[in-house]
Write a protein that binds this DNA or RNA. Structure first.
Lengths: 95, 95
DNA sequence: ACCTCATATCTAATATTTTCGATATATTGA
DNA sequence: TCAATATATCGAAAATATTAGATATGAGGT
């Protein structure tokens, strides 16, 4: 059973790796399937799949299957959650 | 020379480790010196120092020396930067 | 100057993450 | 059903992060 800190850490794992930030940046303009992402990244297919899993686990990215392809995009809901969580984590109690 | 993604990743490294989240949580109520933090965490002195360095490098935490002690606290400016950066990173272009 | 205490740095061990190649699964089309 | 394509999972190697103990630095007091 993961602790609350572990769950929170999983959200920000999305953003603490260079390659994943590159992937997120590529999703700014909208949905991209894995093969498109791979085309622009110097990593193998299984490595990309591993990063996509971490991104999806964080909730910040979601995948949508369409036939053989999976289209990934930034989740508005997941992103908002991450921002709210970050605000909470860095809030200082007024005293 | 670090890439832009590496610099951004450094900000979120603060939040992707359980122990660091525990430290940040301890700073919610205000300044704490390293010895106070260590008292409540099951880690050695050098390990705490290592984590404090990562937290300070992220900009989210700042240290203030007072005599022999260093008082750490959450940086309002650093936190706001992190929140804004997160918003930018997860922004989706309206098209 | 010396001693003490708080924190940082160094070094090495261990743990975790990233990566790749091979294989498995899932979907489509023939 | 079989072949082809996209993605996931497995297993192992390489890279990186975390950790602890030893030592160094820095500040205050004697």
């Amino acid at each position: 059973m993961p602790t609350i800190h572990e769950k929170h850490a999983a959200v920000f794992k999305a953003f603490c790796d260079e390659k994943r930030l590159a992937i997120i940046t590529m999703l700014h303009k909208g949905e991209r399937c894995a093969c498109e992402l791979q085309e622009y990244l110097p990593i193998g297919q299984s490595t990309l799949s591993h990063h996509m899993k971490i991104l999806c686990d964080s909730g910040v990215v979601v995948g949508r299957r369409e036939g053989k392809w999976i289209y990934y995009s930034i989740s508005r809901q997941g992103s908002e959650y991450a921002v709210e969580l970050l605000k909470q984590l860095t809030a200082v109690s007024p005293d």
